[in-house]
């Protein structure tokens, strides 16, 4: 067996264990949704005086990408991966980077098709935020529950993130693409997520105690 075929076989095994075929199908579905939603605004219930908020679709369309990117780190072999050497940790970082880049490319392109370049930039920024939160969620509750914190954050931002005219300082997903502060915050959240992924030995979620990641 040559080194190249060996390498591909290794990638195939990793992809199978992490259900990457299903994740790809999820990416495709999320891309279709992003294309359809690209030019639309969502009207959702909110706490402001009108009782609803109108938000760009790019506040919501990165959510499935983020949940898939972070959730795909969960593997069928998770119980054996708990005791893996540093090789797995490096592979997971590469996996996350590739998943994030692919998601950014798909989401950005899909939003550009029916939306605007600014909207695409906002979508990518929101993707960074949600991926960071999904990684933190994976560490807190286990990787198969990577969706909990991003969805919670979405609810929080949607309902309380705007006074009806202006976004609140912490509702970065509502800010326009040229808000430097929102990009700094997105970078910080993503950094926090990546730190949560790599900083502790794999295999132990913080809550509930002892659950496998």
């Amino acid at each position: 067996m040559t080194a190249v075929t060996d390498c591909w076989a290794g990638l195939r095994r990793y992809a199978q264990a992490h259900h990457l075929a299903q994740v790809s199908a999820g990416y495709a579905a999320a891309t279709v949704v992003a294309v359809i939603a690209g030019g639309h605004d969502f009207v959702l219930p909110a706490a402001n005086s009108r009782g609803w908020t109108e938000m760009a679709s790019t506040v919501a369309t990165p959510l499935p990408f983020a949940m898939l990117a972070a959730g795909s780190l969960h593997s069928s072999m998770a119980s054996l991966e708990q005791a893996a050497s540093g090789r797995l940790a490096r592979a997971e970082v590469a996996h996350l980077a590739a998943a994030l880049l692919l998601a950014a490319a798909l989401l950005g392109t899909a939003t550009l098709v029916t939306g605007s370049p600014g909207g695409a930039a906002e979508g990518v920024r929101n993707l960074l935020i949600y991926v960071g939160l999904a990684l933190i969620s994976g560490r807190l509750f286990s990787r198969s529950l990577s969706w909990v914190v991003p969805v919670g954050a979405f609810v929080l931002v949607d309902f309380w993130g705007s006074d009806g005219v202006r976004p609140r300082w912490w509702a970065w997903q509502f800010m326009v693409y040229d808000s430097l502060w929102s990009w700094v915050a997105a970078g910080a959240v993503l950094t926090g997520g990546v730190a949560a992924l790599v900083a502790r030995p794999a295999g132990r979620s913080l809550w509930p105690p002892g659950r496998r990641a």
Binding site: A9, G10, R13, Y14, Q16, A17, S75, S76, M77, A78, S79, L80, E81, A83, A84, S85, G86, R87, L88
Partner: peptide
């Protein structure tokens, strides 16, 4: 005691993946 596995793996794939995990 309860170890998970990808049911579509062959025996070789499973053990080889474990070898990769072990480094």
């Amino acid at each position: 005691q309860h170890f998970g596995y990808y049911p579509g793996f062959t025996v070789y794939d499973f053990v080889r993946y474990s070898a990769w995990l072990r480094g």
